[in-house]
Design a protein around this nucleic acid. Structure first.
Lengths: 231, 231
DNA sequence: AGAGAACTTTGACACACCACAAACTCAACA
DNA sequence: TGTTGAGTTTGTGGTGTGTCAAAGTTCTCT
């Protein structure tokens, strides 16, 4: 197996305060793996035996209800740790992780979690910081689901997507990975039909441009008006 | 000020592995305070200068939307840490904490958080475990809000209340603190009117018995059927 | 190049739930 | 013991959004 380059980690928050020697140690214990799009990385309820770092690609973290419905808990962009059940003293994964596009991830066995926290300054700190951000986002989503109409929720979800994982294209910002109406409905607690209707309406007034599995936001300002973010 | 007794902490998870000497140290740095019912302890967005331990009483942790609606993020029972923004590297509280009933809490300045984590084995571990549980509960609520009808959500919320903070009474289990229809609607994303109708209907079939600000679950099994938990 | 699957769009309809409204009950306080 | 306000109940009507249905479009695989 080819050796991994230290520059992979040196700019990422959990590792940024470490020396190249320390990063070398960490990399030498990591298992890199490539995943096709729409592939499961780990599954809800299963033994959490490894934790991961996403180097490239995008993930969807999904929960499934007893009656088979899926809801998307969050999206993970490159550079973030995921599957960090050990950080919360869990021994099973709380959700299932799927790749949204072809992805590359490193992983380590959980038994290394404690040593990492002990040995590498900033590792725990940075991890808990992202955990805090995720918790925050979840609270915001609960509030939205509980109080806001579908249109607002979809607008807010779309804004979050392009903010967290948007890529500049001419005329707007595009969601950086393939995403369907169904996926958006699973993020916002509605149906793909309603999402389709909303996107069609927004396309008519020039707020978005969409194609199969692709969405470009051309007027983010209009969306944030709809989402009620800036009242 | 009277000295606090060590037995206050010795049975609580974050402190259970510590010696009486260590518990003494912790107590000597704590500020105890009593709060009336329906009193604010700290407010969303304000500087997180202290973290807390609830000794007695019950709290509601609340988020307010721009348009003034409140939604209840979680309830805190006695024995739990709260206001633990520092654990997530936050410098402001992410929500507002109100007492639901008369309460007693200890608190420490945030600058002691790091020393506590360093000096007391099990303190960090146990803290992150409860954080994990809360995260889990939030995910469950997102799923419910996104996929389930109002009746199911209210049934599930009521079950959670009596499980986490129920006290045995003759003929059932009672929610251990004063709670109104409005509060339940703020936990489930509906209106107090709908909650009132549901409770009336359930009372008719003998599932609950309620009075002003008090709710007794007399048939938990029926509720869990309604909530779809046990299909 | 054709077949099939996956994704999207659009229409018609129903109904769960919210908004509005008003009356009732109980607790607290003077 | 009366008064006030907070909490609760119940009715009526409107509507946002899900459900059901069907056709259109665009990929992918052979």
């Amino acid at each position: 197996m080819a050796q991994l380059d230290e520059s992979l980690l040196s700019d990422l928050p959990p590792f940024s305060r470490l020396s190249t020697g320390q990063i070398r140690e960490i990399l030498d214990q990591a298992s890199p793996k490539r995943y096709d799009a729409e592939t499961e990385i780990f599954r809800e309820g299963y033994e959490a035996d490894r934790f991961y770092l996403l180097l490239d690609g995008h993930l969807r973290v999904v929960r499934t209800t007893e009656d088979g419905e899926q809801i998307i808990a969050l999206h993970i962009p490159p550079g973030q740790l995921f599957g960090i059940a050990p950080a919360l003293q869990r021994d099973t994964y709380p959700a299932t992780a799927f790749t949204a596009s072809e992805s590359l991830a490193l992983s380590w066995p959980v038994r290394l979690w404690e040593p990492f926290v002990q040995a590498y300054p900033g590792f725990a700190t940075e991890t808990y910081k992202t955990l805090g951000l995720r918790l925050d986002e979840m609270q915001t989503r609960i509030t939205e689901l509980a109080t806001q109409a579908v249109e607002r929720r979809v607008a807010a979800a779309l804004l979050r997507l392009v903010r967290q994982s948007g890529s500049e294209v001419d005329g707007g910002v595009e969601v950086a990975f393939p995403i369907t109406r169904k996926h958006i409905s699973e993020m916002t607690g509605t149906t793909l039909h309603t999402v389709s209707r909303l996107l069609s309406a927004w396309e008519k007034v020039g707020t978005v441009k969409s194609a199969r599995k692709r969405i470009v936001v051309t007027n983010a300002h209009h969306l944030s008006t709809l989402s009620g973010t800036e009242c």
